[in-house]
Simulated scan of single mutants.
Amino acid sequence: MVESLREQQLRMTRYIRDPQANEPPPGIGARRLAVYRQLFFGNLQSLLAGNFPVLHASLPGDQWQALTEDFYAGFRCQTPLFTEIAGEFVEYLEGRTEQPGWVAELAHYEFIETALLLSAKAEPAHDPEGDLLDGVPLLSSLAEPLAYAWPVSHIGPEHIPLQAPAEPTLLLARRGTDLMVYFSRLAPLAHALLVSLQQWQLTGRQHLQALAEIAGIELAVIEEQGIALLRSLKEQGVVLGTRPNCTTPRRPPLARP
């Protein structure tokens, strides 16, 4: 029985995707199939190496080869866009729990830079002169608080950690007006405040009150530092101002770590 064109295409694509698990399509020479395989898989490998240069350099060659081959053969991407393949690779690595924990975290750290660089998000309407304490502070859509178990900003070919440190690595990634992405270290209070701003619509005072209650301390202990932090974030452009016409802020449920 003669195969349909679709069946022939599927047979060929299965082989190109995973030649170890699929029979080659009949009538096409091995050299020609190798050219097709190198064309498609080689382009993917080059794309991933460009998106994850530190990860690529930090992994042994055979480990990188095995991961990219397995990703190409078995992971079903949800997007056809080359600019979004990096995010799919991060998701793939997060599912490879047998890999050292720093692998997926380093990939995510590198991906965030690309995601912010390519982001087309527009900043929402806001009042740049709004009261940061009595109003509802608005975090820039081009700022992202990050938390990693591994010291991702220090990992490289010459520094591969054997175990995660006792303290997490807390970072802020943001895209500046010069269209460059910047990373900075965060103190625990700054990171907690940024996450709260990202997740909840509260007044600045309510954010600080909630953080104090979660930590089991009085608001007065962190209030002065928190107010200064909000103003500093506003000066950096991380906080844009306040949300307009936001008069019914929602309070998160309290949860102690």
Results as ranks from 00 to 15, higher is better:
G241T: 13
G216N: 00
Q209F: 06
T248Y: 08
T248H: 14
L229E: 12
G204N: 09
A212T: 05
A220M: 01
Q236P: 00
L208T: 05
I227M: 05
G226F: 03
V238P: 03
E223Q: 13
L208H: 06
L240R: 06
G204A: 06
E223H: 13
I217A: 02
I222E: 00
C246V: 01
Q225G: 00
G241S: 11
L229F: 07
E223Y: 13
R250T: 15
R205Y: 07
G241Q: 07
Q209E: 14
Q225F: 01
E213L: 11
E224V: 09
A215Y: 05
G241H: 09
T203F: 12
T242E: 02
E218Q: 11
Q201A: 14
H207R: 02
V238W: 08
Q201K: 10
L219T: 01
G226M: 03
V239A: 12
E223W: 12
T247A: 03
L230K: 11
S232F: 07
R251I: 14
R250V: 11
I214W: 05
T248E: 15
I214G: 06
Q209R: 08
V221P: 00
Q206L: 14
E224Y: 04
V221A: 10
L219W: 02
E235Y: 02
R250N: 08
I227P: 00
T203Q: 00
L233W: 13
A220S: 13
T247E: 06
R251C: 12
E224H: 11
E218M: 03
E223T: 00
A215H: 10
I217E: 12
R205L: 10
I217C: 11
G241A: 13
V238H: 10
L202Q: 15
T203L: 03
L229K: 07
E218C: 00
Q236G: 01
N245Q: 11
A210S: 08
